[in-house]
Simulated assay, not measured.
Amino acid sequence: MKMISRLLIVTLCLAGFGVYAGTPDFPHLQTTGYGEVSATPDMAEFTVKVVETTMTAEQAKQTVDKVVTDFLAQLKEQGMSDDNVSSSNLYIAPQYHYPKSGQPELVGYRASRTVNVTVNQLPDLNQYLDIALNSGINQVQNVQLKVKEQAKYQEQARQAAIKDANAKAKSLASGFDKEISGVWRIDYNAPNNQPVLMRSMAMDARAESNTYQDSTIVIRDRVDVIYKLD
């Protein structure tokens, strides 16, 4: 028991030291800066899926494979690069009926495959979606508008976050009759969230070809800063 108690005391001391070591022992203030940039999307990614249920696994496989093969062939005919298309492996699962009494009854097999497509020219998005549906694809799972120069907009959002943090720090310091004498610590984690679509996609019925209007995405960033005060 004495040994356990000593180990516990040592552990608590070390933990306390770690907390103390991470806290500045001088006057300071901490701010969080936020930045965001609005951008007009110029490309898109979408995911479609074909799902079929038949009496046998072989029938389900053949039906799904044929739909995906036809879709991929039509994409290639339209000049779509293989690098912009990826398809999943076939997934087959037995389907059962569960009566109130008795054993489950096998009623068929469900097969599915998904296809991911990157569209480098946003005006072509509707065309490729139409091709998917006409090929027998029966589910559109996700359509995401994006920008090609993501890194450029992310840098702009980051610089806006830095300016925001500095502005808040100066305002707070001035309000308490203090001055900022430097930066003690900067905490930054690259955001892993996707840009946010701020307005819904709408079709322009007046145009001869379908276009997207009022579509804006917002790219955000943040930074945490601890400043030294005089």
Rank of each mutant, 00 (worst) to 15 (best):
M1V: 07
K2S: 11
S5A: 13
T11R: 05
A15P: 09
G16F: 09
F17G: 15
P24R: 06
P24A: 04
P24G: 08
T31Y: 09
G33A: 07
Y34G: 00
G35N: 09
G35P: 13
S38M: 15
A39Y: 09
P41R: 04
M43N: 14
E45G: 11
K49C: 12
T53N: 10
M55W: 04
A57Y: 06
T63V: 14
D65A: 13
K66G: 04
L75W: 05
G79F: 03
D82S: 15
V85H: 06
V85P: 06
S86I: 02
S86N: 10
S88H: 03
N89Q: 08
I92V: 15
I92T: 08
A93Y: 03
A93L: 09
Y96N: 03
Y96L: 02
Y98W: 05
P99F: 00
S101E: 12
S101K: 11
S101H: 08
Q103L: 04
P104Y: 01
P104L: 00
R110L: 07
S112V: 00
S112T: 09
T114G: 07
N116E: 10
N120W: 04
L125C: 07
L129Y: 05
Q139G: 00
Q141P: 06
V143L: 03
L145G: 05
K148L: 09
E149F: 04
Q150R: 12
Q154C: 02
E155L: 15
E155S: 14
Q156P: 02
A157K: 09
Q159H: 11
A161Y: 02
A161T: 05
K170P: 01
L172S: 03
L172V: 05
G175M: 01
F176E: 13
D177W: 00
E179A: 10
G182K: 02
R185W: 05
I186P: 09
D187M: 06
N189D: 14
A190V: 12
N193A: 13
P195V: 05
V196P: 02
L197F: 01
M198H: 03
M201R: 07
M203R: 15
D204S: 11
R206V: 04
E208D: 14
S209F: 09
N210Q: 09
T211D: 08
Y212F: 14
S215V: 15
S215K: 01
S215F: 00
V218C: 04
V218R: 12
R220F: 01
R220N: 04
D221L: 05
D221I: 04
D224S: 13
I226Q: 13
D230G: 08
